[in-house]
Design a protein around this nucleic acid. Structure first.
Lengths: 329, 329
DNA sequence: GTGAAAGCGCTAACAC
DNA sequence: GTGTTAGCGCTTTCAC
């Protein structure tokens, strides 16, 4: 029924080995033979069985992707970048949603290993200690994109959130801002830690306090923005620094509904830089980060590991820039 | 190095066949033997090789997903629904972006077949004639979610765009609207055809003309919304019906920048119902469609085909509702 | 209830 | 350049 390499060999009057050579582009085949084999392949509509090939060669040209939630704009942008590079290097991607749940992560990881993927890329979210440990004992290469493991020992690609946060905070301090607030939550525990670290270092250097009542940790969602504002408004912040764009947009609307003017009475800035930033009025000030590239570079790094290429640097830090749009003065 | 079924068999003093039975939950194993085997599996940390299993059993528990663009909010929502159901039925998903390009679709399709996927789900976009033909000759089941093939012969899940369009158009006609405009483009050729069909049937029944100058076909993107408005504003439409939310939001902002009041001077309604609809002010009126479910139901349908379950209906039409929010009167 | 053995479709030595 | 052969790790008859 299905055409196998054996059928092709018989029909072309060569051995399976020769057919295999032709299919795999091995140069040690006489052009005439090659042509004959190719003709038969076409005529019989032969399609190599990747599963059999995977079993024999121990390479599946498949990589696993563990992602918190593909329907989240931020992550789907990373996924697109990663997938494009994978395709470029002839890999297919098995994508699974973890909801940033440590147990699901581990199940997915084991499934991927059992499918004999050549490599795994872990996106965003937070890497739990257990997951990190399992990863470290595995023999397939793993790259982390858009987050770190807790002790930053795995190959990873990121932007420098600490610095971005410092830069922004300094700018506001120089503008005379005294009351800061921070809004985080969702999958971005690592970003949260970094951004708070940046804020706190600058603020304490300037003797400005960031008390707990001005920190809100919720969900990275639009509707949660309202809750966030509700939670911190009594502190009368002059600036709200928010990880997620979607949440920030929720805040902007909640503030406006509260009758306050943005940016004159309250400024908002976010760190995600999804396409959403331009879809609000006023446009959202944000840290521009190359989402697509974070995914793409992560996958490129993974291909290097999978092909045993020389790795200069297992940690890649991509540049960011800060764009002050309408929600800041 | 890697532990195989043979290692487990030797260690547990049984044959490979018995280990295989235990792993696959075959009941014909004495409980005592089962326990012993399970103990060894655990001790040796044995993990079945899915590739070998796939080769032997001709089932890979993997399904292929062909999607126009995973970074598009609309499609990533479908993808999430589909993936959840796949996980529930123990399938993994290989996801590839086609950019709605017929040639890429076919390449992806062939790659998936070569990987011996148990089924394929085709999302959104437009199915070209060639792709449709290839699909029809393939032996793996294929389900189409969020679009139809041109002669609607493949199993598919959709909402009834024609009716939704009629309903909306009738409402506006009753409100006395005389000048309609339509904005489409991007991946949604099928939706476009259906929506225009619905509009035209109602309009012609009411002797209202929809001339070509009031139809704009562009890209499903925010920035394209401005272009769309630029292109049709000279026609002074009272209502713009737009497939994509993102594009519709672009239109809303372009209209506002033009100094016109929404909804009093111009009304806008869209058909995608992504999360974006609530993230603009005024909130976007739109056709509510169950994106997550379109993906989920599609995958459920596919599992039925893969498991040779009874199929009552190969075409599923999911309900929609029309929500008039702030961009309509 | 359990084992032996034949494949699944391919790659990768190795020989010629 | 090309063919032979032995696996890759598992499932699946078929015996017993």
């Amino acid at each position: 029924m299905t055409v196998t390499i054996y059928d092709v060999a018989r029909e072309a009057k060569v051995s399976m080995a020769t057919v295999s050579r032709v299919v795999n582009g091995n140069p040690n085949v006489k052009p005439a033979t090659r042509d004959r084999v190719n003709e038969v392949i076409k005529r019989l509509n032969y399609r190599p069985n990747a599963v059999a090939r995977g079993l024999a060669s121990k390479k599946t040209t498949t990589v696993g992707v563990i992602i918190p939630d593909i329907s989240n704009v931020y992550y789907s942008e990373l996924a697109r970048g990663l997938e494009d590079i994978a395709t470029m290097y002839k890999y297919q991607t098995i994508i699974s949603n973890s909801d940033n749940d440590a147990q699901k992560e581990q199940e997915i990881f084991n499934n991927l290993l059992s499918k004999q993927v050549d490599g795994i890329i872990f996106l965003g979210g937070t890497l739990s200690k257990e997951t990190t440990n399992i990863i470290k004992t595995s023999s397939v290469p793993v790259v982390v994109s858009g987050t770190h493991d807790l002790d930053a020992s795995l190959p990873a690609v990121n932007i420098d959130y600490v610095n971005a946060s410092k830069e922004i905070t300094e700018k506001f301090v120089q503008d005379g801002v005294k009351k800061f607030a921070f809004v985080g939550g969702g999958y971005s525990e690592k970003a949260q830690i970094d951004i708070l670290e940046g804020m706190k270092s600058v603020l304490s250097a300037n003797n400005i306090k960031l008390d707990d009542a001005s920190i809100y940790i919720g969900q990275e969602q639009y509707l949660d923005g309202e809750k966030a504002y509700e939670a911190i408004k009594s502190q009368n912040p002059e600036v709200i620094m928010c990880i997620s764009d979607e949440q920030a947009i929720g805040i902007v609307h909640a503030v406006q509904d509260d009758g306050k003017d943005i940016p004159n009475e309250l400024q908002v800035i976010s760190f995600n830089n999804t396409r959403l930033v331009k879809m609000v009025r006023p446009k959202l000030s944000s840290v521009m980060q190359p989402l697509y590239d974070i995914g793409a570079v992560g996958m490129r790094l993974l291909t290097k590991y999978m092909n045993d290429e020389q790795i200069e640097e297992s940690k890649v830090t991509l540049p960011y820039s800060i764009v002050y749009r309408g929600t800041t003065k």
